[in-house]
Amino acid sequence: MKHYTESTDKQFAKEIIESAPQQSKAWLSFDKEVHDVQTSIPTKYKELISIGIALTTQCPYCIEVHTLKAKEIGITQEELSETIMIAAALRSGAAVGYGLLSMKFFKDTEE
């Protein structure tokens, strides 16, 4: 095994879909409904939101898919950069948030 994640790993999606067809169909349908159906949130915003979430969940496949789709529909480098920085701010904020929990555990042992 060269790397834990590689772009070519997407080839294994076929096996997952074949091995869990009902669940895969439901998930793919849900994903399509969320991303592809026109709603009050424009597609451009949906893709920028998806990139931000993919960055915080650290899913390389989602980062690739949503970045390329967003570029295809015309996002700018500046919009991508701002999305990256929003994700970075939220991710660091989450560390502080979980730090509160850590402090709580620390303080609870003093009682």
Rank of each mutant, 00 (worst) to 15 (best):
A87H: 09
G93T: 06
Y61E: 03
S19C: 08
T57E: 06
E47G: 03
A87M: 09
L80C: 02
I49A: 12
T56M: 13
A13Q: 00
H3L: 04
Q23S: 09
S92V: 00
K2Y: 07
I86C: 14
T39G: 13
I73G: 02
I63T: 05
E47M: 11
H66K: 10
L68P: 00
E82F: 06
D36E: 15
A95I: 12
T109C: 04
A70M: 08
L100R: 02
G74A: 14
G99S: 10
E78M: 04
I63N: 11
L101I: 03
K14E: 11
G93V: 01
Y98M: 05
A54T: 13
D108L: 06
P21G: 12
A70E: 08
C62D: 00
F105T: 08
K46S: 10
Q22M: 04
C59G: 12
I63Y: 03
F12N: 08
K32C: 12
S19Y: 07
E79V: 08
T43D: 15
P42N: 11
K107H: 05
C62T: 12
Q23P: 00
W27R: 14
F106V: 09
I51F: 11
L55F: 11
E33S: 14
K71E: 01
A70K: 14
E111M: 04
A94T: 15
E78V: 07
K71M: 12
T83V: 03
M103V: 06
E79I: 08
I53T: 09
A94E: 10
Q58F: 06
T56W: 04
G97Y: 12
G52N: 06
E6I: 08
S29I: 10
V65D: 10
F12D: 14
L28S: 04
L90S: 11
S40I: 08
F105E: 01
A88E: 08
L90I: 14
E72G: 01
T67L: 15
T5Q: 09
L68I: 01
A13K: 01
Q58N: 03
I75C: 15
K14H: 07
I51H: 09
K14P: 05
H66N: 13
A20Q: 03
I16N: 10
E33W: 05
L80F: 12
